[in-house]
């Protein structure tokens, strides 16, 4: 790798980092506005016009609060918890292809940090270790409510990861590749996977809600039973990191849903464009889809009540996993039929 290439990648990583953080910050604002809209209120409107500076005010407040560590807590693990939560949700963005290549002054720039040929497994890997942030934080707080929350989070994550993984396998079977780039390329134009795999999409979406700890699956931070869940003992920016990482993973999972099922940066009539125009329109298409899914995440949160824990386990193990398995079996049979195995 040449030096210029490394600098180019570093710049892109920095830009992606800033964009992800910015979107996560404004997702908190958007969530409060959406909640207000659903509940017929006005929402935050004091900081700046339409309350647009509210995330900055919140961030500033969190930074200047007292950074407190309980005496009975395990100090290093207590600090490590929010860091891991943030790290794992940010890392997943590294393999997401945001658009086709862009050309600036004769240099071709890939709008993707790393084109790993096992991209989707990379994402599943970081998703599966994402629970450590909650588990470590909850255990290190030395508080029974936090511990309950950590235990809930881990059993929920493991249960829903299975159905999610099976849906991903179905998509991989359709595409024949684990690379996210190939998965996007195979959905050229309007040839999106959601039309072939509607069941897989619904299951994947439900699992994504559960994996990001969003309502109706936010049992780890169920305030009516567990005070604040795993972040009961946290304050200042440490709690901010936990809250923030939820929005980062919401952004990233919306991006993954649009890549796997809604064609990523593909859009209808894309063959009329080429070069940089195509790339820029691709970025716009990708972000539009992502924002639509983020809105759906919020819509669900402010519409549906929370599950009970046994209902959550029942849904995961007795409905979603069998449905995902049957869907995979049918997909396999259809693929085998198309390849002429039964002739």
């Amino acid at each position: 790798m040449e030096t210029s290439e490394i600098i180019e990648k570093l710049l892109f990583i920095g830009l992606l980092f800033l964009i992800t953080l910015g979107i996560a910050a404004y997702a908190t604002y958007l969530e409060r506005k959406v909640a207000a809209w659903f509940q017929d209120r006005i929402g935050p409107d004091r900081a700046g016009p339409f309350g647009i500076l509210q995330p900055l005010a919140d961030g500033g407040k969190l930074f200047f609060k007292e950074d407190f560590i309980p005496a009975a807590a395990d100090k290093w693990l207590f600090i490590l918890g929010p860091g891991i939560a943030m790290f794992t949700s940010m890392m997943t963005g590294a393999v997401i292809p945001w658009s086709s290549d862009i050309e600036i002054a004769g240099n071709t720039i890939e709008l993707q940090v790393a084109d790993v040929n096992i991209g989707i497994l990379f994402i599943m890997g970081f998703l599966s270790i994402g629970v450590y942030g909650i588990m470590i934080g909850g255990w290190a707080s030395n508080n029974k409510f936090s511990l309950f929350s950590a235990i809930r989070a881990s059993s929920q994550m493991i249960s829903y990861e299975l159905a999610m993984g099976i849906c991903v396998i179905t998509i991989v079977m359709l595409t024949g590749s684990l690379s996210l780039n190939k998965i996007v390329e195979s959905q050229h134009g309007m040839n999106w996977n959601v039309f072939y795999q509607p069941v897989a999409f619904i299951i994947f979406f439900i699992c994504a809600l559960a994996e990001t700890n969003r309502a109706p699956f936010d049992l780890p931070e169920c305030e009516s039973e567990l005070i604040g869940g795993y972040h009961t003992e946290y304050g200042a920016m440490k709690m901010g990191f936990y809250l923030f990482s939820e929005y980062v993973s919401m952004f990233i999972s919306s991006a993954i849903i649009s890549i796997l099922f809604f064609g990523g940066f593909n859009f209808p009539w894309m063959d009329h464009f080429n070069g940089n125009t195509l790339a820029i329109l691709g970025v716009i298409a990708m972000f539009t889809k992502t924002f639509i899914f983020m809105f759906v995440f919020m819509w669900i949160r402010w519409t549906l009540p929370r599950f009970r824990f046994d209902q959550l386990m029942h849904l995961g193990w007795k409905s979603l996993i069998p449905m995902a398995l049957i869907n995979m079996l049918i997909t396999g049979i259809v693929i085998a039929f198309n390849e002429g195995w039964f002739n």
Binding site: I118, L121, F122, M124, G125, L127, S128, I129, V131, Y132, M135, W139, I151, S154, S155, M157, I158, E161
Partner: peptide, 17 residues
């Protein structure tokens, strides 16, 4: 990748649990 998903992501979570 599979080592991370299976061992670090699933089995070790159960151990910790």
């Amino acid at each position: 990748a599979v080592n991370i998903i299976v061992y670090a992501g699933a089995i070790m979570v159960l151990f910790l649990f």
